[in-house]
Nucleic acid binder design. Structure first.
Lengths: 227, 227
DNA sequence: TCAAAAGTGTTCTGCTTACACCCATGA
DNA sequence: TCATGGGTGTAAGCAGAACACTTTTGA
């Protein structure tokens, strides 16, 4: 068998949550070159072991490890899903690097507890709408945009949205998620009817209690993962 | 910067076409261990250059190169799209290998011209419905299934289906593509109405001539890629 | 008592589904 | 002339868009 030059392989995370109605991404400020001082997606290199006896960790495991390191959150609380791999030559000036990209959807109640400054690096939530071109390191702007595009595709046809609301949530809270992901307001009446159908279909169920809001309290619902 | 052990990176292709109404995948018989004699998806290692000055080829370029080597077809005639990356430790017993997977959709008229036996290896089209568990090497069964699932998701919301019919095609031919991808027959009347809407929306247009069939000749249409 | 936001109702429109049926052609 | 399969018609029902309206609360 021929020997081949090998690329370095990283796993990068697009960690998203909803803060004050704005879809926000977790970014770290780079403390070293290249792109020193710029914001970047959290990530790290895949552990490969010696490659023969020990072939190292799975891609999903690497993503889960990075997520834990960066946020303290485990996969049981977060939707973590691979969406694409980026490998353009030159995307990292130091060497050939492939990034296997994952998005992680964090419930807003957990997002608030994320320790700001996990790995000694400066960590912050930034609303994606506020990001200007050129502020992200590497090709991370591309990676983020692909993640957002994929979410827009899937939000209507998967249970993705329920990963961005607390375990029990109100219809307006869920509506805020759809509005943020799709980038356009959702009609309250029509949205309510859609949710009603989800309840009839057994996807959602009513949860006890109500949520106190600035005005009229809203009923609570929860996602029925089982049965 | 720390030095990391690196995985080998391959690009594997799920090359699909429609032969006699059956969705079929191009497979090669392996001539060497591991999995000698088993069928496998065509693929090859990513060219990385020296990794510093020359960082090698893009992922898409590697996929296009493999496609050309295996089928003689170029990207201008084929829809080639990355869909996932597979990296489970142990998926290749020799060493840690990541496979960046692409699907390639080939028009049936071109598929018939694919030289059977490209790289001296035995190459053949196999209907995916006829594949039994355990006949594919590595985790290629998984890769194929993920490709098919992705196609089923996208066939209704993208122009993917037009990559599987000849440049000018009849409505029944297009219907056969949808039936094969979705795995269930499509109602002729309803399907025709859907196509009619696509024509009204300017996605398709009538093409000159008719296709002679076993019975009544069918009108021809083509995809309007531009304007 | 007023504004804000939860929650309800209504109408129109268009797509989907299911299925019956007509028609042109090759054998 | 008959079977095949291309092509047309129709009616029921559901889903989405738009929007007016009522209700309940905090300030």
């Amino acid at each position: 068998m021929v020997s081949h030059a090998r690329p370095a392989v990283a796993v990068d995370l697009v960690i998203l949550t909803l803060l004050d109605g704005a879809l926000s991404v977790l970014l770290v400020r780079r403390g070293e070159p290249p792109f020193e001082g710029k914001l970047a997606l959290p990530g790290g290199f895949l552990r490969v072991g010696d490659g023969v006896e020990d072939q190292g960790e799975d891609l999903d495991a690497a993503a889960a490890r990075e997520l834990e390191e960066e946020t303290g959150l485990g996969v049981e609380d977060v939707l973590l899903e691979q969406f694409s791999t980026f490998g353009r030559p030159g995307r990292d000036p130091r060497m050939r690097v492939l990034s296997v990209a994952y998005y992680a959807l964090v419930r807003s109640d957990l997002a608030k507890r994320v320790r700001a400054g996990g790995d000694a690096a400066e960590t912050c939530w930034i609303p994606v709408a506020e990001l200007r071109e050129g502020v992200l390191a590497f090709d991370h702007e591309d990676i983020l945009q692909v993640a957002l595009a994929r979410m827009r595709e899937k939000v209507d046809t998967s249970s993705l949205a329920f990963s961005l609301v607390p375990e029990t949530f109100t219809i307006p809270e869920l509506r805020a998620v759809y509005s943020a992901v799709k980038g356009e307001p959702q009609d309250p009446g029509n949205f309510r009817r859609r949710v009603t159908r989800l309840i009839e279909d057994g996807v959602l169920e009513k949860a006890p209690g109500v949520r106190r809001t600035a005005s009229k309290p809203a009923a609570l619902y929860r996602f029925r993962s089982s049965g």
